[in-house]
Nucleic acid binder design. Structure first.
Lengths: 249, 249
DNA sequence: AACAAGGAGGCACAAACATGCAAAAGAAGG
DNA sequence: CCTTCTTTTGCATGTTTGTGCCTCCTTGTT
């Protein structure tokens, strides 16, 4: 049995049974547990399944809900946000979409900041409630509850008449070859549009998002002006170094 | 059962039952209480649930932090909201603007409600996060932080292409002769527009708002289809009785 | 103030994991 | 066919994770 075959079977089994245990698969497919682990690792990396300790779960379409994913007090996200603050100055027009990392960043912004923030994410808008000198422009649309951003035709159209100095893009998955990708088409279209109306683009990623892929491609990584990572391991730096993106760590 | 599975179940149970007791979960999920405690700790740290002594609570709708938070749990507002629920049925298109009373109403909506909600208020949109069968359409614009609603040309323009069965108008000031009034022009314009695209209009007022006037007039009181008040004192009823508005108390 | 229930932190242990290495199995090319 | 190179697999190695148990501390309630 080929590797590909086996991996396909794992996906099939998972679709049937909702979850699998690694040791179990090992017996059923007559390969060592190590091999199964390697398979699960690859499949998870491709985003096809959700790997957990001792096995894997089916990756239900109900992606992670925003509230489930609200890792507010995540230290690494806070660190990323702090690094990003250096790029933000008074009187800029800043475009920000959704994501918990972005929310974290907004919460770190000094109350004295002046400028304009454009966003399609209600939580981001609300977080700027106390920034008296920041004008908040909300972009409407249909609310996508998984990620708490407005998307759709309205959103896209509204963006055509706007521009920004800096777009802070929430990054779901990123891979040096494939680029930045997201699970839904409308999200991809809106993000791409946002990038196109902004002078500079900033992305922040936690290590778990590096080298992962989702369904719809937003843009190649070198569309980013800045990429902020947790800490740049030598091999990661290498993967991205031929791209025209400034890596900050 | 995997750790992730178990934690997901805990969240599910919590969504159903509003609260859980650790020792109880221990039995239901067949793990030690220590493990449950660790799970609750993690979930709380992720911000998904609210941990308390001996168990956990469901985390209420994501932080309402506009300044008048205490007004939120005002008993009279809750009563008004409860009365309004009777007017809301499945499959309606409901237009709601800002205000704490409206927010209160939205929080009372049954999770099983199906339909569409159009709003220019980020807190309202976020409060509908858990209503899986309610499509939320956000209207963009410039965020007015005092009242947490989007206003301006964009808002006005977006409304021209929409319609609704019921508009739930947030009311600041109301007077039987003058009508409904608000402090800013753009707010008045948007509210008037909203009323014009809706089949029915509902207003809820606490007694302190009765017979008061602000700078910009939205519309006369008889543009309201329903007016819900705390309790109709005879003299109030008299004042409004010649108008074509149904008073509910 | 007393007292039981619940919680924090440490320890232990087995199961699961990552990693490096080498054998096996193909694939490519002469 | 043989050589060479890559891919895949299994195994041996330390390391990490998840869990239960234990002890001591904290909390809420009489």
């Amino acid at each position: 049995m080929f590797k590909q075959e086996r991996q396909q079977r794992i996906v099939d089994i998972l679709n049937d049974e909702h979850k699998v245990i690694a040791s179990d698969l090992s017996k059923r497919l007559s390969v060592s547990e190590d091999t199964i682990r390697r398979d699960l690792k690859e499949l998870d990396h491709q985003g096809v399944i959700k790997r957990v300790h001792s096995g894997a779960l089916r990756k239900g379409p109900p992606v992670e809900d925003f509230s489930t994913r609200q890792e507010m007090y995540n230290e690494t996200k806070l660190n990323l946000a702090t690094k990003a603050l250096a790029l933000i100055k008074d009187d800029m027009v800043i475009l920000i979409d959704g994501g918990t990392t972005n929310l974290q960043l907004v919460q770190q912004l000094p109350l004295s900041l002046k400028g304009t923030v454009i966003t399609n994410s209600p939580p981001i808008a609300m977080a700027l409630n106390n920034h008296k000198d920041v004008e908040v422009i909300m972009i409407g649309g249909t609310l996508f509850k998984q990620s708490m951003v407005n998307l759709g035709i309205d959103t896209f159209e509204s963006l055509t008449t706007m521009r920004a100095d800096l777009y802070i893009m929430g990054i779901y998955k990123i891979d040096p070859q494939i680029g930045i990708s997201v699970p839904s088409l409308s999200e991809a279209l809106v993000k791409r549009k946002m990038a196109s109306i902004s002078t500079e683009v900033l992305g922040m990623v936690t290590n778990d998002k590096l080298d992962t892929i989702s369904n719809h491609i937003v843009c190649p990584t070198d569309n980013l002006t800045y990429l902020i990572t947790e800490q740049v391991k030598p091999d990661i730096k290498k993967l991205y170094e031929n791209q025209r993106v400034t890596i900050i760590d």
